[in-house]
Amino acid sequence: MWDYTDKVKDHFLKPRNVGELEGANAIGEAGSLNCGDALRLYLKVNENERIVDATFMTFGCASAVASSSALTEIIKGMTLDDAAKLTNDDISDYLGGLPKAKMHCSVMGQSALKKAIANFRGVQILEKPGELVCECFEVTDLEIIDAVKANGLETTEDVTNYLKAGGGCGQCLDRIEEVIESVIAKG
């Protein structure tokens, strides 16, 4: 059984801000049904680019629900500029930490937030920029590079914990290794 913190359990059993948000003017989605977890984030942003309300709909395990709930609590009241700086670690820290193999749940939260902000600003985010590395979970090299840099990841196992990449058939593990090495080589 997973070693979840009391805060994770609390946010899973009593999730805050669940449901569609009436009057939402930004939506961000991350994950998919096939991957086993998915999050749809709704934001209501005022004329000063401040998030006045946030809700979510999540399909996934306890840490996915808790990460989504935590995310909405954290960003309410933030300006979009501040929210854009939010990292997956902020979500994980808010919950008192996540099991290593569940870090991808916090990454999903960060990713949905990024997309919601882009959605509000009318910025077109290319669905999947970069070269597809992991076909099972549709993860690209650019996503891996970002996660390696942001979280100081060193092994393919780390990458799987954060992005799921490599956690399915495993055929892309060599390629993930190359991507990690290229980031480390560049310092």
Binding site: F12, L13, G36, D37, G60, C61, A62, A64
Partner: peptide
């Protein structure tokens, strides 16, 4: 998702298992 179901059953003392990934 299965893990969520199991953990909610667990709170009521019901022990089962899942074919889910998580």
């Amino acid at each position: 998702e299965g893990e969520s179901i199991l953990l909610m059953l667990d709170r009521e003392g019901i022990c089962a298992s899942s074919g889910s990934a998580c």
